[in-house]
Write a protein that binds this DNA or RNA. Structure first.
Lengths: 347, 347
DNA sequence: CTGAAAGCGCTTACAG
DNA sequence: CTGAAAGCGCTTACAG
């Protein structure tokens, strides 16, 4: 056996000090499942204080079969929206007395699988999962019997809990807002073309154009990674074209920021020369110059519901769709905003 | 005992399937510490595949006395610099075959203590710790015997590993750069006044002013939280004054962004009317409009060293100071930059 | 109200 | 090369 090189005191030390059995120490610490006489409890509490005892949660988890821990797998925590969602989930877990283990796949499918295996090995009581692309390792998770809530869209025939907003509809709506300003030449910086959410946001954009009777220009569709660099180089690409669109839909906030930087380097200002809206804004949107008109997801409520879905008794898989919010900033061109005065519409 | 409600296969199932003892299964999985005949190994591997066995890392950790896990406690992960440092540490841990558990205190001292206790209960093999304020719970950690590396400045008489850059010197240098443009009226947005790093950055700023023979104006010292809101409201405060400084030092990138937003709302442009530099920039600095002149910490190298310090045999506490980098952007007024062409100076 | 003891799923010294 | 068995630090049904 490995020697206890750290000065760890165990439950046995406490029991010895208090002159009780180890079971009673457990009863005191866990407030059950057996009652303990007040005097005994007192002695145990004193012994704990005196010995500086700290329960070993590994041993507890092994014996009890529950870790009080959830896992969260995200494609890339560098994405501000994902970070804010992760934060909301952590907060909500905390409130429920659970710990949330965060796994960041860094956009790597292989890393994602490693993370999932790792979290399952750690015996998490449940998993929240936003996958890197459209082939999530749902089968691996389901085979383990671990409760699961998917945080993005998956193949419709899979029997899993899903929690999300209708991204297509949200994209349609924010694009419609952009079009309401009368712009006719409208481009899009979308995500990697093979991804589900790229397709959804692209479809929404397309639908809004069609509904407004505006012609779609395929040469103004710019696939890009969901990063600042992605938005930046997409805009650079656009600037090489012979004609510039008058308005743009960026598929997330980070892309929008990269895009605006690239435009600025060519002395093109937003919204005066090119108007812009984006998807999945965060608190950051209001602080940008110009402030960003954006789709916002109600991350706090979503987090609450996500936790509830995992805690729920094992029944049918649920699909839970949330409505989005539209936050109007300066970038679309219809107002000059001050912080705290952005208008928000709920759908 | 709790029933195994999940369809967990254990090592015993694998042993039965392979017709060996459980010990041999361990030897195969861990590649030791005893040799295993090739034929036996093969049978075990087959049995693992067939049963879909996944080792329980809790049980392994309990038996082996090591979790292969480090903990990281940070004051607020919403801070972009801290997020980038956390990311670098995670990457480096990964490379060493370790897992990093991230604990975000959300600027709450109480939450910070909870996190530390939680991580210690989880038997982390080591802890990285950047405290919310100047009273870190070093005693609690040391009492547990868990190896520790502090990631910020602490009372000098404490016997702990410390890893950091000399923030005072870095602040002095970036302020000196600002002053080299000839500005005479120079303000500072600093952090919460009681914090060590606020004091360090303030001292550096002050020293640079003194060296340049520039008068310090106490009314241009604006304490603020290290957030966008902090920078925003500090600037609003400044705008109420009867005279505006010509140049500003913001104590982190996030404050700088909030500050620039506030200035923009009053049609004051950076650097034309107010020049600005900031501390602890991230990749974001280069994408801002204007791009930010900033002190950068070499987070990757620091992360590498941090891991090495924890892994090192238990010897004397080390103090490891890294040199910073100065990244010149547009905000200080000396150049118009393009992304990827920012100049960086190493100190 | 209290305690002896089995069990959680592993690791590993020891004996063969 | 292989296995029986003790032990990691807990929980909890069971018997008193």
């Amino acid at each position: 056996m490995i020697k206890n090189t750290l000065n760890r005191t165990t439950r046995a030390d406490v029991a010895r000090e208090a002159g009780t059995s180890v079971a009673v120490v457990s009863y005191v610490i866990n407030n059950g499942p057996r009652p303990v006489a007040d005097a005994t409890r007192h002695r145990v509490l004193e012994a704990i204080k005196k010995t500086g005892y700290r329960p070993n949660s590994l041993a507890r988890a092994l014996a009890s079969g529950t870790t009080k821990t959830y896992g969260l797998v995200v494609p890339n925590i560098a994405n501000a929206f994902i970070a804010s969602f992760a934060h909301a989930l952590q907060q909500e877990a905390l409130r429920n007395g659970m710990v949330m283990l965060l796994g960041d796949a860094g956009d790597s499918r292989q890393r994602e699988l490693e993370l999932i295996n790792n979290l399952l090995s750690q015996q998490v009581d449940g998993l929240f999962y936003n996958s890197v692309d459209r082939h999530p390792y749902i089968d691996v998770i389901q085979a383990s019997g671990t409760p699961l809530v998917m945080l993005d869209r998956v193949e419709p025939d899979l029997n899993v809990n899903i929690l999300r907003v209708d991204e297509q509809e949200a994209a349609r709506q924010v694009t419609a807002h952009l079009l309401s300003h009368g712009y006719e030449d409208v481009g899009i910086i979308c995500g990697p073309i093979e991804m589900f959410n790229t397709q959804d946001r692209l479809s929404g954009w397309r639908q809004a154009l069609a509904e407004a009777g505006v012609t779609e220009h395929p040469e103004w569709i710019f696939p890009a990674s969901y990063t600042r660099e992605g938005g930046y180089f997409a805009a650079k690409q656009m600037l090489k074209g012979e004609r510039l669109p008058r308005a743009l839909f960026a598929s997330n906030e980070t892309q929008a920021i990269g895009c605006i930087r690239a435009l600025a380097e060519h002395n093109i200002t937003v919204p005066a020369q090119i108007a812009l809206v984006c998807f999945n804004g965060t608190e950051q949107s209001a602080f940008h110059v110009p402030s960003l008109t954006t789709v916002r997801q109600p991350v706090s409520e979503m987090a609450k519901k996500a936790l509830a879905m995992l805690a729920a008794p094992k029944n049918e898989a649920q699909l839970c769709e949330f409505s989005h919010q539209l936050e109007i900033g300066e970038s679309c061109g219809c107002r000059a905003g001050k912080i705290g005065k952005n208008e928000t519409y709920h759908y």
